[in-house]
Computed example of a mutant assay.
Amino acid sequence: METILFQSKFSDWPNESQIIKVKRNDKEQKEALPEIVPFDAKLMIQPTKERVNVILEGTNVGRGTGLDVMPCNNNYNTEYFDKVERRGNKITTLSVMVVACLGIHTQHRSRGMLRQLHEGDTYVVRWQYRIEAAGARSLKGHASKWGQGGGRERCAYFFWQGSKSTINEKGASALMTVELDSERGPQRQVIQGKEPAVFLHLFKGRMMVHIGKRRRRETNSQGSYRLYYIKGEIEMEACLVEVPVR
């Protein structure tokens, strides 16, 4: 909104009114807009065919069972085969322990409450398992002796962090994992909603995530009804997640 008197004080003041412009030909053909075509929904719902890979101590544990489950074909009995070592792995779960991180305090969960988690809390899950060679063959075609007998026992720790947990609680779960890890096993961070298949498989399809915190039961109550949705492509990896009743 500068006046002409103000603009005349500057020799290089930009003035669009003095610029000679080329008149546009309205008859010119406008650029054709791209055609909008709806995407094929069938391509969006196709399950992935990629193998589930979770590496712990240099071994691919897959889904934690030694079976390479392909939900797209309902083929649940195909053993995972290591192309490098030319054999498969049989994974046996020995024990699963869940520890709730309640601030500076810890509480070991009982077996009956093992599968009940809350989105406002953090938990440490200790998985003790054994890996044995499966499908190994000798030069004569018989089962190899290396595939017989027990394998080495291993231990891994997952610290699960709820979507509504605070930064301090997330840090406490990481510190607690270090304190509990006397075996010096691998440690993995697990974020709610992005749990790997091997983590979900530990709960045998009965994992439940509730709204609120475990210590504040009054914040979890939604009246006479509760609403959950179930997710998961495989029954043993199903999970119930509570959502607001609306």
Rank of each mutant, 00 (worst) to 15 (best):
L114M: 13
Y157K: 06
E179H: 12
G162D: 07
E153P: 07
E153N: 14
E169W: 01
S138C: 09
C155L: 11
E169Q: 14
R126V: 12
L139E: 08
K170S: 08
G135D: 01
V178F: 09
G141S: 11
F159R: 07
Y123I: 00
R130D: 04
A133H: 07
V124N: 01
I131A: 03
M176E: 07
H142L: 09
A134N: 08
E132Y: 01
Q148M: 09
Q161R: 14
G141H: 10
E119K: 04
Q128P: 01
M113K: 06
G147Y: 03
E169D: 12
T177M: 10
D121I: 02
R130A: 11
K145E: 07
T177D: 04
R115H: 14
E153T: 15
D181P: 06
E153M: 12
R115S: 15
E169H: 09
G112L: 07
S163N: 12
E132D: 13
Y129I: 08
H118Y: 13
R130V: 10
E153D: 15
F159K: 02
S144V: 05
M113V: 00
T166L: 06
M113L: 03
E169P: 00
W127S: 05
G162K: 02
A136R: 03
T166F: 03
R126N: 09
S144P: 03
G141M: 11
L117D: 01
W160C: 03
L139A: 13
M113P: 00
S163C: 13
K164C: 07
F159I: 05
F159N: 07
S138Q: 10
L180F: 09
S165Q: 06
Y123E: 01
Q116C: 00
S163D: 09
Q161T: 14
G171P: 02
T122W: 01
I131K: 05
Q116A: 02
A156V: 09
A174E: 15
G120D: 05
W160P: 02
Q128C: 13
A156K: 10
Y129G: 06
I131E: 01
Q161G: 04
S144C: 11
G112E: 12
I131M: 04
L139T: 08
D121L: 02
D121N: 13
Q148E: 11
I131S: 01
F158E: 05
C155I: 05
W160R: 02
A143V: 10
G151L: 05
W160Y: 13
R111Q: 14
G171L: 12
D181C: 11
S173I: 05
I167K: 15
G112Y: 05
A134F: 03
H142D: 14
H118Q: 00
G150L: 12
